[in-house]
């Protein structure tokens, strides 16, 4: 357990200020991950950003950026829902791309399918206009110890 992590998670829960926690992971602040809590649900947002473009013709978001955003969504979701926060360690990650991610805001939510003592099993979906028309879906396993 890291004291810094513990403090940032408690602070995020107390005043709804999630950015300091997100900025703990450098790549999350480089691509510009944000998050907002709605009751029990936490929605992560990746604002449109010219630096995240991978296909300049469409233009479309870089596929790797979409996947990383989804992976980070799962990491933060896990950190925020644990009683004793740890930094989850990724074991595997698998993403299916369904539509091109256009140059606009992208959203993601993570559902923790199973939270074990050692391993967490997560599924993440990402969308832009409509949640029912996801641009990608992913699943991942994390080690929690």
């Amino acid at each position: 357990m890291s004291p810094v992590l513990n403090q940032l998670v408690s602070q995020a829960h107390a005043d709804g200020e999630y950015q300091p926690l997100i900025d703990l992971i450098p790549y999350a602040s480089i691509i510009g991950v944000e998050c907002q809590r709605y009751g029990e649900e936490i929605v992560f947002r990746l604002p449109a950003n010219p630096d995240n473009i991978g296909n300049p013709v469409l233009p479309a978001l870089h596929g790797g950026v979409i996947a990383s955003f989804m992976e980070l969504t799962a990491v933060f979701q896990l950190m925020l829902q644990l009683n004793t926060p740890v930094l989850p360690k990724i074991v595997d990650f698998s993403v299916d791309y369904m539509r091109a991610g256009l140059d606009k805001d992208t959203f993601a939510i993570c559902e923790v399918q199973r939270q074990g003592r050692r391993v967490s099993n997560c599924s993440v979906i990402a969308w832009q206009e409509r949640k029912r028309q996801p641009i990608a879906s992913a699943r991942a396993h994390f080690l929690m110890d």
């Binding site: 810094v4 992590l5 992971i25 870089h62 996947a67 990491v75 990650f93």
Partner: peptide, 21 residues
């Protein structure tokens, strides 16, 4: 890409982008 506050997962996500590319 470094983080001084926590000592794990420093490349968080970057690896995914790199592999995709």
């Amino acid at each position: 890409l470094f983080s001084c506050d926590v000592n794990t997962y420093l490349h968080g996500g970057v690896l995914t982008t790199m592999v995709d590319h």
